[in-house]
Design a protein around this nucleic acid. Structure first.
Lengths: 383, 383
DNA sequence: ATGTGATGTGGGAACGGTCCCACAAAGAGG
DNA sequence: CCTCTTTGTGGGACCGTTCCCACATCACAT
């Protein structure tokens, strides 16, 4: 008896002396059952350690209450990816609250295998994280399964996707560094095929251009209105350093976006960097920033005294570094929470879901850039 | 037609003009089917985008090919936990290779809710990661489901568990620092209720004691054999510093094991540390080590010139830090791979599975300790 | 007494597969 | 030509639920 893995509703009903319909009503809570019967069934359930079989239930309900999460990646399999790990964590919590369980897969983007797996009615819906190309999307589209993209790199208007507003984030980063007086920028840009990297870069560059134009305009007005004028002048422009125009902007493209790539890139271009008059380094993600910063530190460059370094993503790692990395936050919590919530609505058949949600980013000022940044960091790493 | 979510085997058979038994044979590959029929069925499957329903299949097979992974944690939900993230990654890959899918849950250890979920025949087996107390184990035991513990903290002999040999690792850490000439040790110990932390600590302390005894013995032999003796003398003992006995060993207990705890602990005891004559700091995991090290660095202490710092776990983060953290590796890959492999055997009904496997650890020498450590690190952090 | 409605309970089809078994057709050996 | 096997196909039970519907019982009003 004890060797039996589990009991069925029929066996439970038999023990309780009722029909399986009645037992079902008591267990599932749908339908009538007299107190007497209810008690008998519950007692029997207790005795047999009865647990309803979720598989059978899913079959008739045509609903599994499972959500598939696929994290696409280039090379290494990475749940421990500092940003995606956070998003997955949030998804896990949000799913739990809504009664869903999560199937997690990591996959190279060209393989459709794990997709197939999920498509076998194993899940009610799909959350796709990160880059994935058209062929994958087209494939998923063929099957009528609700899915949603998080931090993806497609611009397909049919696809529901949640992204952070990387362009605005890039602009804020530029503004932050510019306001701190920097005029020589070295930018480490991750793969431009990535939506995130390319938007962060363009946001940064565009903002820099506009700031510079404004500066020029003010300077000209200053000249036109003559010396000793009371004309409206931007207050920062009174300082000599701020008044100067941007001296140099260099974009160094990295084919990859990991820490190692940051290291490699800076090692290769260290001499150029050292002699170029750069005072600020911006990377399109934290990992690249940290990799590059590590090389600088190892070469005796002081951060932020000699060079300010700024990343993007607000990974926990950045906050733990010495010096703590100034960065731009990505609302991983919002991304994860909403992904599940919206998918849940799609699974429920609702049509009026937003096609695109953008999450705002903000600068997290810390020690790696000039200024008053604090060195705190969020918790991570319990064993 | 296009609005239909999916087609059943019956519909497929109908289109192909065969019975569902025949269609099943073709699709599943079990049993006879003439080339003619086979082709017709496959063509129909193509047309309907037929996918076998995994739920129905699981019901009759009483086999889901799903494995549940539950990561227990104290406070924060953390897949992004640098060590567990790695283990989960490995499990994901290993599972993929063996044809399993992974249900991932993080849970506080007292809640049995996610356990219940898994127990509803949703999975073929369970992998439990990290600390979980007796009540959880007892609960799982009641249901006859194969399960395995990874890096757990129980000593229950019934439970199959995979752990790293933390005691030996602690010893190696002690040896490493001792051999580098350190005689004043400050130890940051994580929660002693954790098997890992307590064994790492005891291994470290015991080894230190033995090394010290040996040193004394050698010194006495040295004295006895008179000056200018050719007696066997440990080569390192010729150096004055090495010959000296251990001067001080302090164990600072941290109630928690995260980065923040390391920071907090060192901030509180900084004065004591500074004036105590310590030249080496060992923490029972990387996070505590990095937290403590960050405080030292911020106070102008040079690592490793003034103090050597050593952690444990070999998290990617340690290798990225500046200075790169010397640490003791944990075979996350082996742990994850074997967890799935052994569980697979248990699911298959095999009885002769090992009850306990210990994985050896080795010192990863890097820059944060005196010596020739290299500063490389493994890749992480692609976006 | 009898219809009527509320209140519980049981029977059985359905979900979408697998697989055992029956059976038809065709080829081989007497 | 008739059995006997081989080979391919179909019928249908079964897995463990849910849920619709039928039906039994009983109180109450007619």
């Amino acid at each position: 008896m004890d060797t039996k893995l589990s009991y069925s509703l029929r066996e439970l009903a038999q023990l309780a002396g009722v029909s399986k319909s009645t037992a079902s009503r008591v267990i599932s809570g749908n339908g009538y059952a007299s107190p007497d019967v209810r008690e008998r069934v519950l007692k029997a359930a207790e005795e047999l350690r009865y647990k309803p079989n979720a598989v059978a239930r899913a079959m008739v309900a045509k609903r599994t209450y499972n959500i598939g999460v696929i994290v696409f990646r280039d090379k290494l399999p990475i749940v421990s990816h500092t940003l995606y790990g956070k998003i997955v964590d949030e998804i896990l919590m949000a799913a739990e609250n809504l009664g869903y369980s999560i199937f997690l897969k990591t996959d190279r983007e060209m393989s459709l295998r794990s997709m197939d797996y999920m498509l076998e009615q194993r899940v009610d819906g799909l959350i796709l994280i990160s880059r994935l190309r058209k062929n994958v999307i087209d494939y998923v589209k063929k099957f009528n399964i609700p899915y949603i993209m998080v931090n993806g790199s497609t611009e397909d208007p049919d696809v529901v996707h949640l992204v952070s507003n990387d362009e605005a984030g890039g602009e804020r980063a530029a503004e932050h560094l510019y306001d701190q007086g920097h005029r020589g920028f070295f930018i480490v840009a991750g793969p431009v095929e990535h939506r995130s990297h390319s938007l962060r870069l363009s946001g940064f560059l565009n903002k820099l251009g506009r700031l510079d134009d404004r500066k020029r305009t003010i300077a000209e007005e200053d000249r036109q209105s003559g010396q000793g004028s009371d004309g409206i002048v931007d207050e920062t422009s009174t300082k000599a350093e701020d008044a100067s125009r941007i001296s140099i902007v260099t974009v160094a493209e990295s084919p990859d976006s990991g820490f190692d790539s940051g290291v490699r890139l800076m090692e290769e271009r260290y001499e150029e960097f050292r002699s170029g008059g750069y005072t600020a380094l911006f990377a399109t993600n934290d990992m690249l920033a940290l990799g590059a910063m590590k090389v600088l530190l190892e070469n005796g460059v002081h951060v932020p005294e000699d060079v300010s370094v700024m990343g993007y993503d607000n990974t926990d790692l950045g906050g733990m570094y010495h010096p703590a990395l100034t960065t731009v936050s990505v609302d991983a919590a919002g991304l994860g929470r909403d992904a599940v919530a919206i998918l849940d609505r799609m699974i429920g058949g609702q049509e009026n879901v937003p096609r695109l949600i953008e999450y705002e980013s903000e600068v997290i000022a810390r020690r790696s850039t000039r200024g008053e940044g604090n060195g705190t960091c969020s918790g991570i790493g319990n064993t």
